[in-house]
Structure formats: structure tokens, C-alpha cells
């Protein structure tokens, strides 16, 4: 493991029943690095990033996040989750709470922040994702793009060092994808360590430091975007790219 690695996966294996979903996955992510993970559905890319904040448990190998190894130790898991923010495909906002409450909930209850301070923080985060005027609405009253931006603001309010994005634009209508990607680009330019699972190749070309291509539970290819898109090594990658870029 190199000095600067903030996330380190070593020989990670995981099974769902008999299905071998992650097979000897090795990945090193440096501080402030932006990784885009792509691959066909069922290739294990979501499972891999969900292992990083222990929403899924790996069965073999080791995962170290910011110097903390993920084991059965609950305290370690809590500490890792404080370091790592996550944005989901289905947004997963809390429908019974207003936008502002969605964002202040974790700072108030997990970080014990005073309410007034948390609300100020929430408004600042909403400015960053460009929807401060929606603070008092409920998630059900927002469009998909707005909901996803609230979800990003909610994660950022915990001040994470690492952000994981699990297909953040896959559930959105085409005209809303850009507003979410814009926020993510701003975040990347601000120096956040990011792992993004996405099929938005335009986004990948703009912000990624490194592309990771997965298929059938294995990392097939890791390369810079330039090399990945113009001169991929594996035939599987070429096939995938020809299909996805053809659309």
C-alpha cells in the first residue's frame, strides 16, 4: 500500500449465495483521486463500492479506508461511515422529512451539532447544489434531479473525505442528468476523493483521473481516460465501449 492511498482493496472476494460476485478485486485509490467505474450490469461494480462503506460485507481479503480496516468491529464501521459519503441511484431521501431536515438530521444526531449551526450548514450545502429555495419542501414535491442534488447535499453535510456515487443519474429523466453531473463536476474540481459508478462517458472523460472497467466480478482493465477510450487493451473493454458509445 502506497503512502497516499486513502482506499485500499486487497484480494477482496464476495459471494451472494453461490454466486461469486467479487473475484480477487484489487484497487488502490489515492487522496483527491477521481475514479470512474464502469461495466455491464451484474459485473459487481455497485457491490464493490458498497463494500467500501460496509453496506455489503466482503468475505475474503482486506479493505482499508483512511487507515481503518473494515472488519466486524462496529466502531470501525461507524468511523468509516463518517469518512465516506454515499449517493444512491434511487436518491433514498427520507420522505417524511423536509429537505432541510433531511440534511440536518445526521449532523444533529450523529455529530451532535447544535440545531442552528446545522441549519446554517444545510443552507450552505443547498447553495452548493444550487437549490436553496427548496429547503422547506418535502422530497415528494421535487423533481428527480432536485432530489438527487439534495441527496448529494445531505452527504456533504457530514463533511466526508470520500464520496461514493452508485449510478447517480441512472434513475433520472435525460433533461435532469446534466444538473446533477454539473454538481458532481464542481465537487471533483473542489478536490474531493470520488469513486463514481456511471455510464456517463462524457462525465468520465471530463473528470476521471482513472477508469476502472469491471466484468463478471473482476477488474478487467484500469487505465487513464485517454488510454481507456482511445486504446483499450482488453477485447472485453473494446466490445463494451463500442456498445455504450454507439448509442
Amino acid at each position: 500500500m502506497s503512502e497516499e492511498s486513502i482506499i485500499s482493496l486487497k484480494n477482496v472476494n464476495k459471494w451472494f449465495g453461490d454466486f461469486h460476485v467479487l473475484q480477487d478485486v484489487n484497487l488502490e485509490v489515492k487522496k483527491k483521486e477521481r475514479i470512474v467505474v464502469c461495466g455491464p450490469s451484474g459485473s459487481g461494480k455497485s457491490t464493490m463500492i458498497r463494500c467500501i462503506n460496509r453496506l455489503e460485507e466482503h468475505q475474503e481479503g482486506s479493505i482499508v479506508v483512511d487507515g481503518i480496516e473494515l472488519t466486524g468491529n462496529l466502531k470501525n464501521i461507524d468511523n468509516v461511515r463518517k469518512e465516506v459519503g454515499m449517493v444512491f441511484q434511487q436518491f433514498n431521501l427520507f420522505p417524511h422529512l423536509s429537505v432541510k431536515e433531511n440534511i440536518t438530521l445526521a449532523p444533529i444526531w450523529v455529530k451532535k451539532m447544535p440545531k442552528a449551526e446545522a441549519e446554517e450548514l444545510a443552507m450552505r450545502q443547498l447553495e452548493i447544489v444550487k437549490i436553496p429555495e427548496q429547503a422547506n419542501k418535502y422530497p415528494g414535491q421535487l423533481s428527480g434531479g432536485q432530489q438527487q442534488r439534495v441527496a448529494i447535499a445531505r452527504s456533504l453535510a457530514m463533511n466526508p473525505n470520500i464520496m461514493l456515487f452508485d449510478e447517480p443519474t441512472s434513475a433520472l429523466d435525460p433533461e435532469m442528468i446534466k444538473e446533477v453531473l454539473d454538481v458532481m463536476v464542481d465537487l471533483a474540481n473542489g478536490g474531493m476523493t470520488m469513486i463514481v459508478v456511471t455510464h456517463e462517458m462524457g462525465f468520465a472523460k471530463t473528470v476521471a483521473d482513472r477508469m476502472v472497467f469491471m466484468d463478471e466480478g473482476k477488474i478487467v482493465e484500469e487505465a487513464s481516460p485517454d488510454k481507456f477510450f482511445n486504446n483499450p487493451e482488453s477485447d472485453r473493454t473494446k466490445l463494451f465501449l463500442s456498445q455504450i458509445l454507439h448509442q
Binding site: N53, R81, F94, L105
Partner: peptide, 20 residues
């Protein structure tokens, strides 16, 4: 997804259940 979102924000079992 509600459980996952609560967990990813660092909430404990009881906080997750009581608040979300």
C-alpha cells in the same frame, strides 16, 4: 434504500430506527 441511506450517514441501529 432507507436503511442504506441512514447507515451511510453513520447512524446507529437505534437512531436509524427511531428517526428514519
Amino acid at each position: 434504500g432507507q436503511y442504506e441511506a441512514a447507515k451511510s450517514l453513520g447512524m446507529s441501529y437505534w437512531r436509524m430506527n427511531l428517526l428514519i
